[in-house]
Amino acid sequence: MYLNLNRNLADPDGFYEYLVNSQRHMNNEEANRMNARLVLILCNQVGDMDTLKAAIDMASDPKKAM
């Protein structure tokens, strides 16, 4: 498949901390809006439709997609 499901983050803890910290001051709605923007930005970065479809399917039902 096109999706890279192997380890690809050089600093997993650092990444996770940055993500969570970015929303620490937000309420749920603000965080949800930010997540929506983040999804769109990352989708554009990926660009390839087959990869995006695979990621969307994976996210909507992780067990079924495997």
Partner: peptide, 8 residues
């Protein structure tokens, strides 16, 4: 939310 994110 996605719609508003697009517009933002």
């Amino acid at each position: 939310r996605f719609r508003d994110a697009v517009l933002d």
